[in-house]
């Protein structure tokens, strides 16, 4: 369980969430994104293709990093949410706040 990141050939920073994004590890994601912003990265994709669960603290962490990225003049996209996780975004109306693609490839295609 954890986070891994790599850079897409187009220069997009791709963060993969392996396992869960929850109260116990949300700060790790926030720190990782902050470090990427300080490096000058401005286009970030968080991919949930290998994620089983996101709790409300994880949702909150995504809202926080979205704000930070926006304030830095960047853009955040999400991808790979399974049906259960997508339902959490819909229930909380966060699907209106984030650009969400079915797959990382789709998210990256016009980033």
């Amino acid at each position: 369980m954890g986070f891994s990141q790599n850079k897409d050939p187009r220069g997009v920073t791709v963060v993969e969430v392996d396992g869960q994004l929850i109260v116990g590890n949300r700060h790790e994601l926030k720190d990782l994104v902050q470090t990427a912003l300080e490096r000058g990265e401005r286009r970030l994709l968080v991919d949930f293709s290998r994620t089983g669960y996101i709790d409300s603290s994880g949702l909150g962490a995504l809202v926080s990093i979205s704000k930070r990225i926006r304030e830095a003049g960047g853009e955040l996209r999400l991808s790979g949410l399974n049906d259960d996780l997508r339902s959490l975004f819909e229930l909380t109306k966060l699907d209106t706040l984030f650009a969400i693609a079915e797959t990382p490839e789709q998210a990256l295609s016009n980033f």
């Binding site: 709790d55 409300s56 949702l59 909150g60 809202v63 229930l91 706040l97």
Partner: peptide, 15 residues
């Protein structure tokens, strides 16, 4: 909507 906190109890009530 742009707040980081406050969704947990809402989710419980909905589910």
């Amino acid at each position: 909507l742009d707040e980081a906190n406050g969704r947990g109890l809402y989710l419980i009530r909905k589910l």
